[in-house]
Design a protein around this nucleic acid. Structure first.
Lengths: 209, 209
DNA sequence: CGCTAATCTAGAACAAGTTACAGACTTGAT
DNA sequence: ATCAAGTCTGTAACTTGTTCTAGATTAGCG
């Protein structure tokens, strides 16, 4: 729909060689695999290094901290998801419906690997200033997914605020579910509730009904 | 308004002696002080223990992890805030307005000690299942504050969902501000945006205007 | 090819959260 | 007052994220 956003995720990266690209991939895969097994705590830097067949120092050269590594893992997974979602766009007629459907679909995908989700989301919210650029990339990806579902090309400031609020709710609801403090049903309700904001901020839309 | 919620925060606690109460207080104060200075990283268990005049093992007996300690610190601070807010309730006529005002007031309070806020919020979102009861207590306190601002005694399920979404937004917006990825103005806008959900879920209210 | 700079490896070392333990001190009941 | 049980202290050890270093390997270039 809009431009392809695969190539320019890290325009500052100084062009890796093939072997380096392969190392990076092995590291990300090892990270995801360990995370899927035992969550945040199971992603131990020494183990990631060993599983990826790479020295500890090298791991740290590629990802300067465990948080960086997990946020990058999340980037990677989100990319998959975005691609998948684009293949089968949501069916609803209402933007709010479509966004809710998209998010619940993403949610069900995460449910399949709850430990991986746990590791990624915990890393994301724990990240401090030093990881801001990477976290921002994840945020932009999420925004892109939501705007895609809304079917909006040039969102108004109000719409952007609504999207941010939806993202906030998405992350936070995910956390409460992952830590066992909310049921899936509750997450669904909350997502649907927040998505009502979209109707409220549609620039041209008539009031509901 | 409703019942006093000072006494029954931890009904499971086996009644501490006076000296133990004092120890607990010294620990919480030390924690808040160190956090205010240098944020999450500056709250080092050995330092907290020393500042509180308590052995490391004792600190761990009172708070079984750094996360527990910081979540308890947040409980403590929230309690203060709730008391303070009750003294001067928000002035707006609209529930949504009042909630937004209340949250922005809380936000400005946190701004005064951004490092402390950082430590507490990071701990809160990083907490895993093992800390659920404590995190839940914080959540109930926050809910109470918001319901107070709304002026609602017996909220409907829709209202409770809206309150949850507001809480989600509150936490997550706080995090993005603390990690420098959003401005105060943006936080304000997002809070105001999400508060519009309140009008949407008022059970008796006429549609807006 | 042969050189130089960058990268990678293996492993030690350090930092802070957490656990373990032996001995001193408190508390509560008799 | 005394005893038993529980608590607190001081300290060492263990774990895992992170840093550091010396030597091997690789990549790019003349």
């Amino acid at each position: 729909m809009t431009a392809d956003n695969r190539a320019d995720l890290s325009p500052s990266a100084p062009a890796l060689t093939e072997r380096q690209e392969a190392r990076r991939r092995r590291i990300l895969d090892a990270s995801a695999q360990l995370a899927a097994r035992g969550g945040f705590d199971a992603v131990q830097m020494r183990e990631v290094a060993e599983a990826a067949g790479v020295a500890l120092g090298t791991l740290y050269r590629y990802f300067p901290s465990k948080i960086h590594l997990l946020v990058a893992t999340m980037q990677d997974q989100l990319q998959h998801m975005h691609t998948t979602l684009r293949k089968r766009p949501p069916a609803g007629t209402d933007p709010a419906e479509r966004v809710a459907e998209t998010l619940m679909r993403a949610f069900r995908a995460l449910q399949r690997e709850p430990q991986l989700a746990d590791a990624m989301v915990r890393a994301l919210t724990f990240a401090d200033r030093g990881v801001s650029p990477e976290v921002d990339t994840v945020s932009r990806l999420t925004t892109a997914i939501i705007l895609d579902a809304m079917g909006v090309e040039h969102p108004s400031p109000q719409q952007l605020s609504a999207v941010r609020v939806i993202e906030h709710t998405w992350h936070s609801a995910l956390i409460t579910w992952l830590s066992g403090r909310a049921s899936i049903a509750q997450v669904k309700i909350d997502i649907e509730t927040v998505c009502r904001l979209i109707d409220l901020t549609a620039p041209e839309a008539a009031p509901r009904h």
